[in-house]
């Protein structure tokens, strides 16, 4: 890996930015890489579109913005529709499968889906859907080391929710392994 450009999109309230921060932190603090995160700041609020861009690299990162993502993580249809035209030809698309319709996607692209919201609800809190996505992303892309991300989840969430979030991470990760094995 030289440089990988990631984009996380969804709607405000889903924890999109935190998902990006967890991956960036995992890469730059626990996986010997550099990671630069920028976020789209608009008049955004709960329910509207929101996104985080993360560049992960073995080298020093100069240009701060993502121009053409290698991986798009979409947690809403709106984010998928807006950002999927920007991705590289051989990009990986990671989606919330019950919220995003990927039927029209170019077959050259690898698409991995997970019902993250439903899994989060089964764990008892819909809020952790972003961490389920983070686990799934970690498994299917291999961009950042699993233990590094797990550690990053642990120190990015409120202490009282660590166990729940780690469980969410593991669920997402296992689901990703299974999807990869079946592919």
């Amino acid at each position: 890996m030289a440089t990988v450009e990631l984009k996380f999109g969804g709607f405000g309230g889903q924890g999109v930015i935190l998902a990006g921060i967890i991956i960036g932190k995992a890469a730059s603090l626990y996986d010997n890489k550099d990671a630069t995160l920028t976020q789209a700041f608009g008049p955004e609020a709960r329910g509207s579109a929101c996104s985080a861009q993360v560049i992960v690299s073995d080298d020093r990162i100069l240009y701060p913005y993502v121009s053409s993502p290698d991986v798009l993580v979409a947690m809403s249809q709106d984010a998928f529709t807006r950002f999927s035209p920007e991705v590289k030809d051989d990009a990986i698309l990671v989606v919330e499968s019950e919220l995003v319709d990927t039927s029209g996607v170019d077959p050259a692209k690898r698409v991995y889906g997970i019902p993250a919201t439903r899994i989060a609800e089964e764990l008892g809190r819909k809020m952790v859907l972003n961490i389920v996505m983070v686990g799934f992303f970690t498994a299917v892309t291999g961009v950042v080391d699993r233990e590094a991300v797990r550690r990053s989840v642990r120190d990015s969430v409120p202490p009282s929710t660590i166990n729940l979030n780690l469980k969410a991470f593991d669920k997402g990760y296992e689901y990703g392994r299974k999807v990869l094995a079946e592919a």
Partner: peptide, 10 residues
């Protein structure tokens, strides 16, 4: 500037 202010890095 806004870019540096809102950019997250190590």
């Amino acid at each position: 500037d806004e870019c540096v202010g809102h950019m997250t890095e190590r």
